[in-house]
Computed example of a mutant assay.
Amino acid sequence: MKRVILTSSSGVGLTYAGRADMVVPLIFRFVWGPLPTSHHLEDYLTGGYYRGDPEVRWSDLVGRLPQTGLAHKETGLVWFCETYGVEFIELWFDPEPNSQLQLIWILDYLRSHPSITHCLRLRRVNFDLREADGPQLRDRTVRESEIAECDFEIANMAWEAYRAPTPELCFGLLTRDLPRLPFLKPALEALLAELPSPITGLGATEARLIELIARGHNRTKELFQPGGLLETRVFDQWELGPLLEGLASGPMPAVAGLDPKLATLAPHDARGRNAAYRRSRLSLTEFGKAVLEGREDFRRHNPIRRWWGGTLLTNERLWRWDRERRLLIAP
């Protein structure tokens, strides 16, 4: 086996592009909810199954291979690459923030496996993998570079910063020169922009949501669909629902018209929740209009308990981001 591609879920299409003998899409979403533990991430990559353990492993997303069949099943990723003579391991991660977080995580992990680090190649994917069609993925020229020790060091620094209990270390990285990982700083800044504003109390995607609702876009389908009006770079359509629910609940909601049945449905009831979202007809409350105009702070009147990387945001520990001044504001 000559070539393996590691990519994010955005790069699933590479499986059919004929650019590698094996394509491994990594599934983790690091931009929403608590981060997986180091043990959980290790288990995902080392393979093996345990009684009562329902978790997906890396190999579950790779089908039968022409050269090795199902030999990769229930094995470790590194062990498989060593055993089957993989010559090149290419990293295809586009500029989307979650993909950049996956890149620094996998680089940090592979750093401790020197037997294969010489095989690693970084592809500078400067376009959206999810939106690229088959011919683009197959034929597009994508710059390649070897992985240097400084790349591992930056990845380790950035991954530890994102996992830290405050966003301060991530903010500090914005002043660093990171030419070999050119999409990392823009991704970190996009993530920091999702912290509450010091004026409105809303993150960038929340603010965009209420702007669109104020313009009359009252259907969740047009707000949530990939590549739609919202143009979010950080959250996917499954994460936008809880974000919208946060704006429509609490003592002083900014959004009205969300189907009340959502409050009674289990988080895993995707079918029921999707139907409830489709039934919703959204509008701004008077308070929501005041928030949109910067006359009210949403977080002064409503609770928050949300993860930003390793930081748990609460009303008592509410880190904020000033987008105009590019400044992190401590609680």
Rank of each mutant, 00 (worst) to 15 (best):
R3W: 03
V4H: 03
T7E: 00
S8R: 06
A17P: 03
V23F: 03
P25Q: 02
P25Y: 02
P25D: 04
P25R: 05
L26C: 04
R29G: 08
R29T: 12
W32Q: 09
W32G: 04
P36D: 06
H40Y: 12
D43G: 14
T46A: 13
Y49W: 13
P54S: 07
P54K: 07
W58P: 01
S59A: 13
S59Q: 07
L70E: 15
L70P: 07
A71M: 12
A71G: 10
H72V: 12
H72L: 14
E74N: 15
V78K: 01
G85R: 14
G85A: 11
E87L: 11
E87D: 14
F88I: 14
E90G: 01
P95M: 12
E96W: 08
N98C: 08
N98H: 09
I104K: 05
W105A: 06
W105Y: 14
L107P: 03
Y109K: 13
L110K: 00
L110P: 00
S112T: 15
S112A: 15
P114R: 08
H118I: 10
L120F: 01
R121V: 15
R124A: 11
L129A: 04
A132R: 07
G134V: 09
G134C: 12
Q136G: 12
D139I: 02
V142L: 05
S145Q: 13
S145R: 15
I147G: 02
A148D: 13
E149F: 05
M157E: 15
M157K: 15
W159A: 04
T166E: 10
P167R: 06
L169P: 09
C170I: 09
C170L: 11
F171H: 12
L173G: 04
L178S: 00
P179Q: 05
L181F: 00
P182H: 01
P182C: 00
P182D: 01
K185I: 08
P186G: 04
P186V: 00
L188M: 13
E189W: 08
L191T: 03
L191W: 00
A193S: 15
A193V: 06
L195W: 06
P198Y: 05
I199Y: 12
L202M: 09
T205I: 08
T205C: 05
E206G: 09
L209Q: 05
I210M: 06
I213G: 02
G216T: 04
H217V: 10
N218D: 15
N218E: 14
T220H: 00
K221F: 13
E222C: 10
L223V: 10
L223C: 10
Q225V: 15
G228L: 08
G228W: 07
R233S: 14
D236C: 07
E239V: 05
L240E: 01
L240S: 02
L243C: 10
L243R: 07
L244K: 03
E245R: 12
M252K: 11
L258Y: 06
L258E: 07
L258C: 10
L262E: 01
A263H: 11
T264G: 08
L265W: 04
L265N: 01
A266V: 09
R271P: 03
R273N: 01
N274H: 12
Y277S: 01
R278F: 09
S283K: 11
T285S: 09
E296F: 02
E296S: 10
F298G: 00
R305V: 01
W308L: 03
W308V: 00
L312M: 11
T314P: 00
T314D: 03
T314Q: 01
T314K: 02
E316V: 02
E316W: 08
R317Q: 14
R323K: 07
L327V: 09
